[in-house]
């Protein structure tokens, strides 16, 4: 069966029998070589990732400690990163408070209502456009809109809104995918029982899509947590003061709970320390901070997988 095909592949000169063998030996060698090279790419990527993780584990050794996480920054000693870590978590929560509802609702429209028309394709174009606009440009948009024109100055709220702009397409797309994965029969059954479209979405489609939706939330959160370019010109780059967590006055810029204050996050802090290049402990602080960022990325990724799998099992078993 294979003879005609191999003849076609071999060069048409010389005695057929020997050429065919030669040709197939060459192509088998090429195939083996290709297999080795392709395996090589897989091994290389794992090696790069492994050495990065190892590098930061070693670099963080002796730097990351409870006091590094819980202390204020210091100009004379190693100090800690508590205020910037607080700001990272604060910005994450503030951004997700806006981005998650809007993203999931948008995803519901795209999965359940959107028809094949000009409006839908305009929304898709916008989705793709924001995803491809450089993060620094989104940051500049936040700068002109909130910081300059609205006269807010550098605030956590401006940063969170700019981060929402940047991550809304991702949140919407992941929600849409999660909702589309719900089998059509579930919708038909609900509609056949007399439920309205919205009742079906509310009580059938969304509950079934929850594992996927949560995975989407966690993946978006991972991206929000590490983002710096968007925040550089919206939430500010100053070293935070000592925070008094007993101050719950949301309108007071001195309160760490207020959205109307500058909020330098961990990623921005790394960038700032590097560009200012000051302090005897700069390298240790940045190494430790980078290690914490990577650890958070790992937690977000593994968390998304674990929770997604756990919820799917729970919901499908119930």
């Amino acid at each position: 069966m294979t003879a005609p095909a191999n003849q076609a592949l071999a060069r048409p000169s010389g005695p057929k029998q020997s050429l065919r063998r030669k040709g197939s030996r060459g192509s088998i060698l090429a195939d083996r070589a290709a297999t080795v090279v392709l395996w090589g790419t897989g091994v290389l990527v794992l090696a790069i990732l492994g050495s990065i993780l190892l590098h930061f584990a070693l670099a963080a050794w002796g730097v990351v400690s409870p006091s590094f996480i819980l202390d204020d920054p210091s100009s004379t000693a190693l100090g800690g990163i508590m205020p910037v870590l607080w700001n990272s978590i604060y910005m994450l929560v503030l951004t997700m408070l806006i981005a998650v509802p809007v993203g999931i609702l948008g995803g519901i429209y795209m999965a359940e209502y959107a028809g094949e028309n000009a409006v839908t394709s305009a929304i898709r174009f916008a989705e793709e456009a924001i995803s491809s606009v450089p993060s620094i440009v989104v940051g500049l948009f936040g700068l002109i809109l909130f910081v300059d024109d609205a006269h807010w100055g550098f605030t956590a709220l401006a940063g969170a809104l700019a981060l929402t702009f940047f991550n809304l397409p991702l949140m919407t797309r992941l929600s849409e995918q999660a909702l589309r994965a719900v089998p059509q029969e579930e919708r038909s059954a609900s509609l056949a029982l007399g439920a309205t479209k919205w009742q079906t979405i509310q009580h059938v489609v969304v509950p079934l899509a929850i594992p996927g939706l949560i995975t989407g939330v966690i993946l978006t959160a991972g991206r929000v947590f590490g983002e710096a370019a968007v925040l550089l010109f919206t939430a500010g780059v100053g070293t935070p003061p000592h925070y008094n967590f007993a101050n719950f006055d949301l309108l007071n810029p001195a309160s760490p709970w207020s959205p109307f204050r500058p909020a330098t996050t961990l990623s921005v802090y790394i960038y700032k320390l590097n560009s200012e290049g000051l302090g005897a402990f700069k390298n240790q602080i940045v190494d430790g901070s980078a290690a914490i960022l990577i650890a958070m990325v790992l937690i977000f990724n593994l968390g998304a997988r674990f929770i997604g799998r756990l919820l799917t099992r729970r919901l499908t078993a119930a």
């Binding site: 809007v102 993203g103 948008g106 959107a114 989705e127 456009a129 809304l168 919407t172």
Partner: peptide
């Protein structure tokens, strides 16, 4: 839900 999706058009 339409407004939520269309907000991206407004942002862009």
């Amino acid at each position: 839900v339409f407004l939520a999706a269309a907000s991206m058009v407004a942002i862009v």
